[in-house]
Nucleic acid binder design. Structure first.
Lengths: 227, 227
DNA sequence: ATTTTTTATACTGTATACAAAATGCTTGCA
DNA sequence: TGCAAGCATTTTGTATACAGTATAAAAAAT
């Protein structure tokens, strides 16, 4: 395969230039592969094979797998290596409960601490998202949607909260990504977002938390059928 | 060194017997060493040296370090290896905010889902804790205290919540461990716990959440001075 | 024909060796 | 005496080799 040769040549160059280590590079790459479904849940990971594909030897690959295991994206089975973690419906439901709670916490903190400029930046994202909705561009909509939720968490200026939220978010991403909602649900989701941004701009913590609660509860219903 | 030989011989035996992999063994060991202050914040970890101490080669040790890096207990500096992570006062404060929120969530879930037997088991732990308080046994008290908080989270029957709570808990552990509170504060902490268990037994979610909120807010004040 | 045992193969776990990078020290020079 | 440059040493990063274990297939026995 031509791409593999390019990959190998690229690696050396990238390693030299980029600030990221090879380890970090592999971690990001594998994380994306898992989230985007390139590596499917339950699939066993053969170190030799995957290492060859990525153009790296087993050592840094194994280190990356350990890292991802701690993130909960792969499972380490003793003497049988790594397997892409598979989540049950309950697992996903449980994650969404926690994510919802964390976003509500973030919302309250954000109302108290966020700067006007930071909130304005979220409004810009929101408006862009609405335009993608009106244009029917689901993928672009989805990406901005994610960014807004992550953005609200970021407003709370609480690193552990951001980290843990991102951790769980990355696990449900590959499931949410599949979820294509119907037109009327999509419309109401956008309306919910509008109210969320408005509450944030008003710095009305309780309204914001309540709206997020409703929104994520609905989102959960939207996803539920897929899992 | 004689101990090294014993260590190495011991390792082979242990590896054969224990269900845990050597990797898992090292992870647990290092985690304890960090939490208990054996490895101090900011301290650089020399792989050769530490590997020799533990009687393992660099490969599994490095894999364990990557795992702990993902847990947030060590930091990986490119080309300069691993350093025990140091947390600022704000970091700790932020963690405690998140932990508090998660315990409150757990409390609400627990009131709805926990079995009577599970709650009864917590009551037993609580009573034992009170006895240790009365005997003035701080360490034993502290351990049961931890167990009770972890136990409440466990009652929620939400694996991701348990995992994430444990993650943050392990980071603040080494700080809390140092925190020795005064007699009157200790007394009020015990009283708060009594109310918490009572609310749990009554399955009064809102009271339980409120009491936990107060308790953890106070606990934060208790710790604050130390950091 | 089915089940059990043996054997071969493939993969993981661990150690070691080598290469590249960083740090610290020494020596030379101003 | 102070500074800088180069060299030596230490340490990390990566590859490879070897050992142990699980899996699968084939052969033998019931």
């Amino acid at each position: 395969m031509a791409s593999e040769v390019i990959e190998q040549a690229g690696r050396r160059t990238v390693t030299a230039i980029s600030r990221q280590s090879l380890h970090g590079e592999i971690v990001s790459r594998l994380r994306d592969m898992i989230i985007e479904g390139d590596l499917q849940p339950g699939q066993r990971i053969y170190e030799n094979q995957l290492g060859e594909e990525l153009g790296v030897s087993r050592t840094p690959l194994r280190e990356a797998l350990k890292f991802l295991a701690s993130e909960g994206l792969v499972e380490l089975v003793p003497s049988r290596g790594a397997v892409v973690k598979r989540f049950s419906a309950k697992d996903v439901e449980d994650m969404l409960i926690v994510i919802r709670s964390m976003e509500m916490l973030a919302a309250r903190l954000a109302c108290a601490k966020a700067s006007d400029e930071a909130i304005a930046r979220l409004r810009v994202l929101h408006d862009a998202m609405v335009r993608h909705y009106q244009a029917g561009e689901r993928l672009e909509y989805y990406k901005l949607n994610q960014q807004i939720h992550t953005g609200i968490v970021a407003l709370a200026d609480n690193a552990p909260l951001t980290e843990v939220h991102g951790l769980l978010q990355s696990r449900v991403k590959r499931i949410r990504f599949i979820g294509h909602e119907g037109a009327e649900r999509w419309a109401s989701a956008v309306a919910e977002h509008e109210r969320i941004i408005a509450a944030l701009e008003a710095r009305d913590a309780e309204t914001l938390a309540r709206e997020l609660d409703i929104h994520l509860e609905n989102g959960w219903e939207r996803v539920k059928s897929v899992v």
